[in-house]
């Protein structure tokens, strides 16, 4: 691939920088550059990267930034490959079906024993509460009225002084023009 001027061209040895690492670094520069990656036609062990800054972007430090990024990706990939076996073993241990099955069985047993104990405790508490309630109920008679709820108002506080006869009330309201006395009179009469 050829790229028009105004850019930077870099050559990377595939021995040090695998194509994946170069591509990863390119991915990071997509926002500010037009990127082209290709193998060197004269030397298959070299990758050529061409960067052309987009409008508003400068070419300053572009090469050094890209080289840093490529190196970073290359190291990451090497670590990733070097630790793949250990990672696989960890996953195997953690997600081993036999181990998971055994662990779940143990957990179920633990839960069962714990929940049984909890149920027994709850039953004891419930029985005690019921016994207390029964005791309290036995000590009271339903005819007892300790708070005086069943006592009528008049017995407690006596008759109000300003209580009016219904006819007197209608007459008072008629004087104020609030009711028609003839109509209300019939109602009171009935």
């Amino acid at each position: 691939m050829k790229n028009g001027g105004n850019g930077v061209e870099m050559h990377f040895s595939t021995k040090l920088f695998p194509a994946e690492a170069i591509l990863g670094a390119c991915h990071k520069f997509l926002a500010k550059c037009y990127v082209r990656v290709d193998y060197d036609e004269s030397d298959a062990r070299k990758i050529i990267v061409q960067l052309k800054p987009k409008d508003g972007e400068t070419i300053d430090n572009l090469e050094s930034e890209f080289r840093d990024e490529a190196l970073d990706y290359s190291v990451k990939l090497k670590i990733l490959k070097g630790t793949s076996r250990v990672r696989d073993q960890i996953f195997h241990i953690v997600f081993n079906p036999e181990r998971i099955s055994l662990a779940s069985d143990n957990l179920q047993t633990e839960l069962d024993t714990e929940s049984r104990a909890e149920v027994f405790k709850l039953n004891d508490k419930m029985e005690k509460l019921l016994a207390d309630i029964e005791e309290e109920e036995e000590s009271f008679d339903y005819e007892d009225d300790p708070l005086g709820i069943a006592t009528p108002w008049e017995e407690k506080y006596g008759q109000p002084d300003n209580i009016l006869d219904p006819r007197q009330q209608i007459e008072d309201q008629a004087k104020k023009g609030l009711v028609i006395p003839t109509l209300n009179g019939e109602v009171v009469e009935s």
């Binding site: 028009g4 591509l23 991915h27 997509l30 037009y34």
Partner: peptide, 17 residues
């Protein structure tokens, strides 16, 4: 056209992600 091709090449790299 050149800019279009550049954008297309960038998009291919993006798709490789």
């Amino acid at each position: 056209h050149e800019n279009f091709i550049d954008e297309f090449c960038n998009y291919v790299i993006y798709k490789m992600g």
